[in-house]
Design a protein around this nucleic acid. Structure first.
Lengths: 236, 236
DNA sequence: GAATCAATCCGACCAAAGTCGGAGCGAGCC
DNA sequence: GGCTCGCTCCGACTTTGGTCGGATTGATTC
């Protein structure tokens, strides 16, 4: 039941470490303010975000939403310069929102602000089109800097984020079927139950599980579940 | 490997559903303001909390801290009326902080404000002496109400919290040893590795595992890990 | 069309997980 | 003392999980 596979290769993805810490109220060329749409399901967090943005002279929070569904009409109505969005939302996820908006507005700019720092979360968000990914645990300078940099057409990925991204194994990508199996594993289902649920043989399920273990670089299903959770491949 | 044990009994713990939504700036007997110490590791969240508190006429945020260690001297210096604290903090946990302060100041009042709604988290916090437990996803009225109610000597536990608490199995309590084993299980260690780590036989470990499975009311170690994580018995 | 690659599928084998029944030990309680 | 109760401990048995080798299919490439 133990395995000792080893990988070495790894892949970088994005640039721009940090910097540009001007702070709220810093000297900025006076012009039209950066208009920000804020999407976060925690009301208290929204208050904090809005307070920081409003306290900064060159930006303003024009609208807020507690879910992606609620935010869609707001986006169309205001067409904000930047959308600041959390990933984990009730109903439609943040990534889904980004994808949905970007297909209609390819130049839309997104900054992700979330608590989760799993490499898969980050990967998904950037893949969807986010230009910055910052963690709620960071000082608020990071938020302000990110908004400015992205508004200027750049990207903003703090060191912890790029590090998490760099730690991604190159062959981590799971097939659709494997994802399906992994989800059931996290649900605590046995191989037999998974087989029944998917209408296949238990032997086949075991094979999928083996591949998943290899791709996640772990030894057994328990480790697979933990790893998948902390990397953000599956949730809860 | 399957089990079908069943429990029925359950136990209520606390009272006070909700209410008292006066909102920021509501009419309140003018007097000395409620002096609040805020402890949260997310700077942006601290800004939001402080903004809400300051916007409410009968309370004021006198100090803030990003960790329990940092907060200890602040508590002794200011002796706040209420301490508003997150559970998951870098270093010393929120519960540990509550315990530590309450042994020296038995009348200290604590309101927990966190994102985690696992029944074990809640149980631990209340056991430690917290008088209110609110979730960051709630409207800010809840925060204000909680602070007022607790300042008045009462408690404040919103329905979702009491519900989570009520869903606790009566025999969920794990022994110290079992906790230790569970922690290693979540770490993805095999029974053999756990045995080695604890200096006992693998057979003994299996016995502990069996008991843990029974107490958590699950069938296998994978479910145990998932359940322990979402209930807040162990973290990450 | 041949070759390659990846995903899906399967059965037989071995090692680990989990069950069952039982034993020693300390704290607390008539 | 004699009793129970809970925690810790253990070995032999059954079930499940994971490995290995191999087969099929469909898409891509040359």
């Amino acid at each position: 039941m133990r395995r000792e596979g080893m990988k070495a290769e790894r892949r970088m993805r994005c640039d721009m470490p940090a910097g540009d810490t001007m702070g709220p109220g810093g000297r900025v060329a006076e012009g039209p303010r950066i208009r920000v749409l804020v999407i976060d399901d925690h009301p208290i967090m929204r208050v904090g975000i809005a307070a920081i943005i409003q306290a900064t002279r060159d930006m303003t929070a024009i609208a807020q939403a507690g879910s992606a569904e609620e935010a869609l009409p707001l986006y169309e109505k205001h067409l904000p310069d930047i959308t600041l969005i959390d990933l984990r939302l009730p109903g439609m996820s943040g990534v889904d929102f980004i994808r949905a908006v970007i297909t209609r507005h390819p130049e839309a700019k997104f900054v992700v602000l979330t608590t989760y720092e799993g490499d898969e979360d980050i990967h998904q968000a950037l893949e969807a089109g986010a230009r910055s990914y910052i963690i709620k645990g960071m000082p608020h300078d990071a938020l302000v800097s990110a908004l400015r940099r992205v508004h200027a057409g750049g990207r903003f990925l703090p060191p912890p984020v790029t590090r998490a991204l760099a730690s991604r194994m190159p062959d981590s990508e799971l097939s659709a079927r494997e994802r399906e199996v992994l989800l059931l594993m996290v649900g605590g289902r046995s191989n037999r139950e998974i087989a029944a649920a998917l209408g296949i043989t238990e032997a086949t399920v075991k094979c999928h599980v083996s591949v998943i273990l290899m791709r996640l670089n772990v030894n057994d299903r328990t480790q697979a579940v933990v790893s998948a959770l902390q990397r953000g491949i599956v949730h809860l």
